[in-house]
Design a protein around this nucleic acid. Structure first.
Length: 376
RNA sequence: GUGAUUGUAGCUCAGUUGGUUAGAGCGCCGGAUUGUGGUUCCGGAGGUCGCCGGUUCGAGACCGGUCUUUCACC
């Protein structure tokens, strides 16, 4: 994997760059649709490629490991062959899931013992086997196994958690560097900065992570319940330390506004369930603001979904029709909502990139931020 | 026609021996959702308790009448 920094904005830390992988190029800043179990919920790869123009998607170690299981994925020849997606894939390590989904889990120095949300069976994730699993999945970008501390963690907890994540990181890197690419294409490994909402810990963690000089670096443990200002402050602290010439990935973020603000702070990659989860449930993000498609006010609004949208669904379907589909709980409603939101998110980061290159990112961003939070 | 039976929120129902502003689930109307368990959470609106009369300090509950639902029998 290779990252080429193209342009850095003069008035902010925003950057435009290109990531090259064996599965193709990624133009940054980029948003990565979440495809937990190897599929972006409700969206065909055809639409994902041609309509949404997704350049890279996410998969989840935790989910794929539990179902269908590594034997099937390996037999299929990796996730790319299994699901037919021939562009880059990044896999989350499962650190977040182990902590967010599993009722009973036990943390030890060795790793995390957790029970499956599917059948309750017990499993162990370690920094090493999580690398092996992602090798088998065939991810282009493999994430380190980390502990994601809760948003309200105190300093003591956050410090221990960060230190454990650092020790795990060392083991993960050793494992990664001593194992081979599984299916012929190059795989790369991203470490993750932790430190919760504490400046000193974030600095310490960012410096530690930077010292490994990997192909890219991630910022974890944000957007987990802390106020947005804290998130921005921590992001700013971290991006000022992480190497300039490597992509920075802010995990799990966020709203359209969060994304623009974080781009301005020097973040290059994002992923979030928000466009798909909220889209599935009737919340649509547009360049003019947010629409709750379940609202009664749309019932006889026969104008196009989003006249300024770039997706087929934006001009083909009306607001009234989509509201009807949501109220009737039709599957198609969830599909249209997801398709629209993803296409909007991809449009947003593409537009940001254009303005970074054109040199007017900051003023464009300020204007957009105002529009994006309007409730329609 | 006779004898039973039913009637409480848009729907399905709960409401102790009569006791403050009559409840629930669903639906409806809003809001939330940030490295996804096709969701989940949180608010809100909505009822002349079929109708008329009576008993009582007090009736959704008791009594009479009337209409209504369902059933059985002639």
């Amino acid at each position: 994997m290779n990252f080429k920094l193209q342009v850095t904005d003069s008035k902010s830390r925003a950057r435009a760059g290109n990531i090259t992988t064996d599965h193709g190029e990624i133009e940054t800043p980029i948003f990565m649709p979440v495809g937990t179990v190897g599929s972006v919920k409700g969206v065909h790869f055809n639409d994902l490629k041609k309509d949404i123009e997704a350049q890279i998607i996410l998969g989840n170690t935790y989910h794929l490991y539990l179902r269908p299981g590594l034997d099937i994925i390996e037999k299929a020849g990796g996730l790319h062959k299994f699901n037919g997606w021939d562009r880059p894939i990044l896999t989350d390590s499962g650190g977040y899931q182990v902590f967010s989904l599993s009722g009973n889990r036990k943390l030890t120095e060795e790793g995390a013992v957790f029970s499956s949300h599917i059948d309750g069976s017990k499993h162990l994730f370690t920094p090493e086997n999580v690398v092996d699993i992602q090798r088998i999945i065939g991810a282009d970008i493999i994430m380190a196994f980390d502990e994601c501390a809760p948003g309200d963690a105190d300093h003591h907890y956050a410090k221990n958690s960060m230190e454990l994540t650092h020790r795990w990181l060392k083991r993960g890197i050793t494992q990664f560097d001593h194992t081979e690419n599984k299916y012929g294409h190059t795989q790369t490994f991203f470490p993750i900065v932790q430190g919760a909402g504490f400046r000193d810990l974030r600095i310490q963690s960012a410096e530690y992570i930077a010292s490994f000089n990997r192909d890219g670096n991630a910022i974890g443990g944000l957007s987990v319940g802390e106020p947005a200002e804290v998130m921005y402050e921590m992001t700013e602290v971290v991006t000022s330390i992480l190497p300039e010439d490597k992509p920075r990935y802010l995990m799990g973020v966020g709203t359209p506004v969060n994304i623009l603000e974080s781009i301005a702070l020097g973040v290059d990659m994002f992923d979030c369930v928000m466009p798909t989860r909220n889209g599935r449930n009737g919340m649509l993000f547009t360049s003019r603001g947010i629409m709750n498609m379940r609202n009664e006010k749309w019932k006889d609004d026969f104008s196009p979904l989003d006249p300024e949208g770039t997706s087929f669904v934006d001009y083909h379907y009306t607001k009234a029709y989509l509201r009807h589909l949501f109220v009737a709980k039709e599957m198609l409603a969830a599909q249209i909502g997801s398709l629209h939101n993803l296409s909007f998110y991809l449009w947003l980061v593409k537009e940001a990139r254009k303005h970074i290159i054109a040199g007017d990112f900051s003023s464009w961003k300020d204007k957009m931020v105002k529009q994006l939070s309007v409730r329609l």
